[in-house]
Amino acid sequence: MRDYHWLHEYCLNRFGSAAALEAQLPQSKSADELRAITDDRYLSLISLRIFRAGLKHSLVDAKWPAFEEAFFGFDPHKVVLMGDEHLERLMHDQRLIRHLAKLGSVPRNARFVLDVAQEKGRFGTLIADWPVGDIVGLWRYLAKYGNQLGGLSAPRLLRMVGKDTFIPTDDVVAALRAQGIVDKAPSSQKDLAAVQDAFNRWQADSGRPLCQLSVMLAHTVNH
């Protein structure tokens, strides 16, 4: 694999200046900021991520105020009590995206949020305290214990809430393949560990968060 110096120089040449490069890079939240996000906001963001999957984001976002109303502001203590009959009624609410499996994921993830909060005090503690050096472990945890958070949903959710993570988008995977780190989109524990190790090395060399390294790596792919 190529070192961080190569990655940085490539991106500098592509954008023309350090200022132009920095303007393209995302920022992650601090651990304190992640802990401060309330459980209802985490449940709202989890649900937003699930509804965005496979749909135009602007369409989902425009409808989200109606979702906030229909799901009691995503208060997990209220949402967890929503049964099948309630969800069937929501299937007739024309303000919403009427996808039964996605609607059903909301009370299931409310239970997940409450279970974590019972153990750790609040859901944000799980997110804040998870070491970014094993961010793929947090992806697996979310996919295992949450509902409909497999594939790219977990890393995309973490980017939405502000947790530092890389995302194996098509461009990032193409760049990883070009550097011989993986030969396909990483899904096995072995491949995910190899990708995590590569990002950990770039982070150690640069001091940059994973989210910035991920975006920089994507820009090394020629379209």
Rank of each mutant, 00 (worst) to 15 (best):
I46W: 13
V195G: 08
L45A: 09
S30D: 02
A36I: 07
L217P: 02
G73M: 09
G151K: 07
E9R: 13
F199H: 01
A62T: 15
A31V: 04
P26Q: 08
S17R: 12
K120G: 06
L114I: 01
L45K: 12
A154P: 09
L142P: 08
H86M: 13
A143Q: 06
A198Q: 10
F51T: 06
V161W: 05
Q189F: 06
A204C: 03
Y4M: 03
D197K: 08
D191N: 06
F15L: 09
D40I: 00
K102C: 10
E85K: 12
D61R: 12
K29P: 01
A66R: 14
K184S: 14
A154F: 10
F199P: 07
G54E: 05
A20M: 12
R89P: 01
A175F: 10
R208L: 13
L45C: 11
T169S: 15
I167S: 10
Q27D: 13
S44T: 00
V136E: 15
G104C: 09
L158E: 02
M1W: 09
T38I: 10
V80L: 08
W202C: 10
V132G: 14
H86F: 09
M160I: 09
D84W: 04
I135P: 08
Y145F: 11
Y145K: 13
A66F: 05
G180I: 07
D40L: 03
R52W: 00
R159G: 02
E88K: 08
I127Y: 01
R159S: 11
N109C: 12
F123H: 09
Y4A: 04
A143L: 04
A110V: 00
D191R: 05
M216P: 03
M91R: 03
R177K: 11
N13S: 15
D205I: 04
L100K: 14
A31I: 15
R140Y: 08
L25G: 01
I97G: 05
S58H: 13
D3Q: 11
A36C: 07
Y4E: 05
F123Q: 08
P168Y: 05
F15P: 00
A193T: 13
Q212T: 00
D75I: 04
V132C: 06
L152F: 04
S28K: 13
L210K: 01
D183L: 09
A36D: 06
S188K: 15
P131D: 09
C11S: 14
D197N: 13
A31E: 15
K144V: 03
P209E: 03
G133L: 14
L96D: 02
H5E: 14
Q24D: 08
T220V: 06
A36E: 07
L217I: 01
K78Y: 11
G121P: 12
